[in-house]
Structure formats: C-alpha cells, structure tokens
Amino acid sequence: MNSATFARRPLAAMGFVFLSTLATPGVAAEVNIYSYRQPELIQPVLDAFTKETGIETNVLFLDKGLEQRIKSEGANSPADLILTVDIGRLDAAKAAGVTEAITDATIEGNIPAQFRDPEGHWFGLTMRGRVVYASRDRVAQDSITYEDLADPKWKGKICIRDGQHFYNIGLFASMIAHDGAEKTETWLEGLRDNLAHKPEGNDRSQAKAIHAGECDIALGNTYYVGLMLTNDKEPEQKEWAKSIKILFPNNDTRGTHVNISGMALVKTAPHREDAIKLMEFLSSGEAQTIYAEQVFEYPLKPGTQASKVVQSFGEIHPDKLPLGEIAGHRKEASELVDKVGFNNGPAT
C-alpha cells in the first residue's frame, strides 16, 4: 500500500496507524531507551553494544516531558533507560521519582564521582565545556574568567543565546554555587549590560555573529566548534569556526563549567538486567570513545581520549564541584534570569 492510497483512503490509513503502532517490539533481549539525544548520534555506540551482547535496542527521541511521560506511564512504562544531554534533565528525572538508584562497581569505576549522583540515580557519560568563543582578530588575551564577562570593558561586545536555555542555566547555576546568589545577580546584570544585543539564536549563531563582527566574544559549547570545523557541506561554517578561538574560562583556578550527557535507569524498567549491562557498556572506554567521537564531547572515563578535533581546542580543566550540587541551583538561576531581565538585553 503506497502513501497515495493512504491519502485517498483515510479509514484504511487510520487502521494502519492503529495497528502499526499497537504492535510493540517483542524481542526477548532488548533495551528501550527514552532519549533527549538524537538517535543518529547514539546509534553507532548502540550498534557496538548489540554486536557484543546480542541485545537489541529501541530508541525513542523526545525533546521535552520525558520524565512526565514515564511518570504517567507508571508501572506499564516500556522505558528502561533515560539518556539526556543536560544535567538539569537528569536531576529532573530523579526529582520526578522515575529513576532507580543503582550501585555498580563497573560504572563507578569508570565515571568519576563528581559526574554522577551520590545516590546512584544518574551517571554522566560525556562532558562539554561552556566556553568563551573569542574573535582571533579582535581579542588579544588568551585566558579569561566567567567573572570577567561582567567587566565594563566588554560593553557592547558580548553575544549569547537565550538566558533561559538550559546550557546557560547550567552555567548560571554554577556561578551561584561558587559565588552565591547575590554576587551572581550583580554579575548577571553586568553581563546583560555588556551584551551587543538581546540574547538570540543558538550557539552556532554566536560564532557566526563574531565572524560578522557583531561582537568580540560569545558563550558557547565546545562541540559546536567541532561540528563547524568538520562541516564539509557548508564550508563557510569552517570560516566562522576559524575566526574564533576557544578560551576555557577559570581553567587555571576552579575550572571551566561543564555540562554532561548522561544516563539513568528507570525505576519500572521491564528489562532491568539488560539495561544495566548497557549502562556498564556505555561507561566503558570503548563506548565512550565512539560516543565522544560522534558528538565532539569529552569522554568522562579517565584516560579515554577525546577526538583529534576536540583535542585541538586545548586542555580543559573541568570545574571540580559535583554537578549534582550545581543542578540544585538551577531553579534559582532561572528565577534570577527573569529577575534581572536578562533576556531583554542591555539596560541602556
């Protein structure tokens, strides 16, 4: 039955939709993954897992509401494993009570303590830095701190994406954790007033803005630079990436703010044993290498190398503060962003 037939026969189409979706995957050994990470990026590492263990995987990609969905599905939820691209979502899943704490020597041996939940509800897999993109032409200095960004010398020279985006909320939460809410509020006001214009676009747009001369520095994640540098289809993006250099803020002191992609076991997981096997596999050096290569992120397992492109950015010293602690300040950070009117752009 081709698609044209569907268009002409809505009832047949309805029947098809119903039947095709009612049939749930019925393989014995399988793991169902609810993922905030795009399927194409995790497929290579999942394929490696299937090859090694014979356990099949199913991935469902969501962009919001993953924990609410699992919570509503309750005991019948097909979900075994949650994959996220942000500490906030891991923390939210734990708070929603849909995750199960596990103690697993293999995973704990692979993933340093600061990148996993102390109770074992979630574990990091890869990390990326929230760094400063600086114009090669217009910015001479080779080091910077987040605190410097509020210095009036940058007035009209900074670009950033939406302040409520979870990448920024993560960074602002870490500022609260280190400097306290009061200082962070003043800092946010300073940063806001240094912006060239209202927060807008995505991280890649910020690199483009520097290339265009709209601003001299911007905040962005490390992996976007990798993605731009290797974009053979739109070679102009390579130019954007080449016009910027990466500065790792606070790299020599408390460390650069990092966010993680991570995983959590679902409390009601129907394939618990296999899911844990997958978790162990994902934390292994082999998997981390494949995964980190795909996404241009840093593997968390000590001794595992990042890709050549990522290594070319320079050495990153991640913030030592446990990420779980930083995540605890996210709500406060979000409220501060609203309070100082960060998204309205410079006050003057």
């Binding site: 095709s20 749930t24 795009q38 399927p39 991935v59 469902l60 990609f61 509401g65 993605l227 739109e234």
Partner: peptide
C-alpha cells in the same frame, strides 16, 4: 514528538532530530 510510540517517525519529528542540534541544514 511527546506522544509517539517507539519506531514512529513523522516528517516533522525527523526534521526536529536534526534541527534540535542546530543542524537544520
């Protein structure tokens, strides 16, 4: 994107899987 079961992809979810990574191209 929130309601679909495993294995169901529509054109817009297919697009979004790329777009959410700033890769609309």
């Amino acid at each position: 994107i929130l309601l679909r079961p495993f294995g169901v992809n529509t054109l817009s979810t297919y697009i979004y899987e790329f777009a959410s990574r700033a890769r609309i191209e």
